[in-house]
Design a protein around this nucleic acid. Structure first.
Length: 574
RNA sequence: GCGCCCUUAGCUCAGUUGGAUAGAGCAUCGGUUUUCUAAACCGAGGGUCGUAGGUUCGAAUCCUUCAGGGCGCGCCA
């Protein structure tokens, strides 16, 4: 149920039927024609640009054409009590009481599904995929929450969504991780001091992991690193994945599927993918140009196995095998994406951190090559979370072990505020995350503002001893909305469109912005009652007019749906 | 050198996929509470939408130039 779509259809159908009398040769399938909310100062419910667009392609003065359409609408459609031309040729439309009531009742009848745009596709969203060498830090939270809310949004619209996590449990970094744990174990057991070195992980959590491994392997002496490597790897991985999963859980996030890189190698999925690419000669022996960044004196031009990703829009071809014969990280990822493709998703989404920007083209190229351009992969890059502490920028680095973990953050700030804050910005821009400010539990936090509007509404229901499912009977004769109620209703009408755009463009940040605006309108209405008794909703324990209750219920419906999507709670008292 | 992202009010950012007089929050200044919850509301000031061109009825939005900031540019992961 989307009021804008409803009236686009009515208006364009009408124009199609009267194409000749309107003197229109070309309707161009009404491309670009929209119905939307006009700016508030015009005081209309809807506005339509059809006259502007059709005037242009039919060489008719847009105002003249709009006037003809206006006459037609007045004559044929009974939905509007007022139609006007404004500005360069917009049609502004005001709904009759009857249409307003119809639309309100429509939403009240379908509270749970209001705003859904059913699309029934299958999506795979890969997000977080933090290296399993330690707990999550603040920077990971952003992509985690973005991915989770995007999944909620797509599910809300009826799509099947799998939330996936790729565990990079293969390769050198895991070996270094295991080595760090080994050295910490030696430190604990034999008092050999741990000396931080470049490739080692210095973080304190390594000690905890070491202790746990000692505990569960009492007979092991840990004399030789090589001999205990396998044990250390699996145990350390298990512990650090548990750390990550518990962090995610505290943020309200649960993945559906964990995919292990080691599994990938063992099941030879990479070979399979590469062989398929070889069939089309997308993968061949060849030479690469020297890297363009800092000049590397050790670089030599050698023959190697390369993927011709430039055929699919990448900037340069990519190596698939290292000189020791093992696959590159990228080759593994190609294998992984082959597996995703074989699981029959229509859309793949990878949520990445800003430091992986340069990676998006090659993996998108690989998916196109593997699926013959049938599967669409979108890489969404979340820009940096810039951390400030004591006014100074805080550099986050796992290697340095000097990072603020998600757990540290969660200790101080509740998950609702973190989720709302991380989403209250487009993923394309950096977030300044002032740690001290967040610790202050600042009143300025927009999440409180939205929650508070709901708490106020809840208090109305309490006073009235009613709830959101109260049966509403709107009487056509006496139907009247005051200015505030009209504004709120028009805002409510926009909700389906916000959901649609947010999910089509993968821009969940539109939801918190919208909810904030809706809350503003409600707070404004509420406060009028403080100045003027006439604007109070309730008199002698009863609602003054049924319309007010209807509007309040609509606002509640939207706030609830919105906060469900965001994964933020809605206390009914604050 | 190349790629991606950003540049809008003093600060932090929105801007409905080309529309109407460019909007919020914070900060500043001034007001509102015998209350259905003041964690709120109302008002004021504040703009050459980085620059220079182009596309058209119409540009913050699309194309090109240049400038500034961020991230990245391996047989690492």
């Amino acid at each position: 149920m989307n009021i804008f779509e409803e009236y686009i259809k009515k208006i364009t159908d009408l124009i199609s039927k009267n194409k000749q009398s309107l003197n229109l040769d070309n309707l161009n399938n009404f491309k670009g024609v929209v119905v939307e909310s006009p700016p508030a100062e015009f005081n209309f419910d809807l506005s339509c640009n059809v006259g502007l667009l059709l005037g242009k392609i039919n060489k008719i003065n847009p105002i003249e054409l709009s006037n003809r359409i206006k006459d037609l609408i007045i004559k044929e459609l009974k939905d509007f009590e007022k139609v006007e031309i404004a500005g360069p040729g917009f049609l502004n439309l005001k709904l009759t009481k009857r249409s307003l009531i119809l639309n309100i009742n429509q939403i009240l009848k379908n509270k749970e599904s209001f705003g859904k745009k059913i699309s029934n596709n299958s999506y795979n969203i890969e997000f977080v995929s933090a290296n399993p060498t330690g707990p999550m830090h603040v920077g990971h939270c952003r992509g985690a929450i973005y991915g989770d809310v995007l999944a909620n949004l797509l599910k809300f619209n009826g799509n099947k969504v799998v939330k996936e996590y790729y565990i990079n449990d293969y390769g050198n970094q895991i070996k270094n991780f295991a080595k760090s744990v080994f050295l910490r174990i030696r430190e604990i057991k034999y008092n050999e001091k741990f000396i931080p070195k470049e490739d080692l992980y210095p973080g304190e959590y390594i000690i905890d992991i070491g202790k746990k491994i000692i505990e569960s392997n009492k007979n092991e002496k840990f004399d030789s690193f090589d001999e205990t490597l396998q044990l250390l790897k699996t145990e350390s991985l298990r512990h650090s994945m548990n750390l990550i999963k518990s962090d995610l859980k505290e943020l309200g996030i649960e993945h559906d599927y964990f995919f292990s890189e080691t599994d990938l190698i063992e099941k030879k999925l990479v070979d399979k993918a590469i062989n398929q690419l070889k069939k089309n000669n997308y993968v061949q022996e060849g030479f690469l140009e020297p890297p363009k960044g800092e000049t590397d004196k050790n670089w030599k031009k050698t023959k190697k196995l390369i993927f011709k990703s430039t055929l699919f829009g990448d900037d340069t071809d990519r190596a698939m095998k290292k000189s020791d014969g093992t696959w590159t990280y990228f080759a593994n990822d190609v294998g992984y994406h082959m597996d995703k493709i074989s699981r029959n998703y229509k859309y793949l989404i990878n949520v990445l951190g800003a430091d992986h920007t340069g990676y998006t083209k090659r993996i998108t190229a690989a998916v196109n090559a593997l699926s013959d351009n049938k599967v669409k992969l979108d890489c969404k890059v979340c820009q940096l979370v810039k951390l400030y502490k004591n006014g100074k920028p805080f550099k986050m680095s796992k290697r340095a072990g000097d990072f603020i973990s998600a757990k540290d953050l969660l200790k101080e700030v509740n998950k609702d505020s973190i989720r709302f804050m991380m989403l209250n910005r487009s993923n394309d821009v950096e977030i300044d995350f002032d740690f001290d400010k967040v610790l202050e539990k600042s009143k300025d936090n927009p999440v409180f503002y939205v929650q508070y509007s709901f708490a106020r509404i809840s208090s109305i229901f309490r006073t009235l001893k009613k709830d959101i499912n109260e049966k509403i009977n709107l009487d056509l004769e006496n139907f009247f909305l005051n200015e505030n109620e009209t504004k709120l209703l028009r805002k409510v009408f926009e909700w389906p469109k916000i959901v649609e755009i947010a999910s089509n463009k993968y821009e969940p940040h539109k939801i918190p912005y919208y909810l904030y605006e809706l809350a503003t309108l409600f707070h404004s209405y509420w406060s009028k009652g403080n100045k003027n008794e006439n604007f109070k909703f309730i008199e002698d324990g009863k609602i003054k007019k049924e319309e007010t209750l209807a509007i309040i219920i609509l606002v509640t419906v939207v706030i609830q749906r919105g906060m469900e999507i965001l994964g933020v709670s809605l206390p009914d008292r604050m």
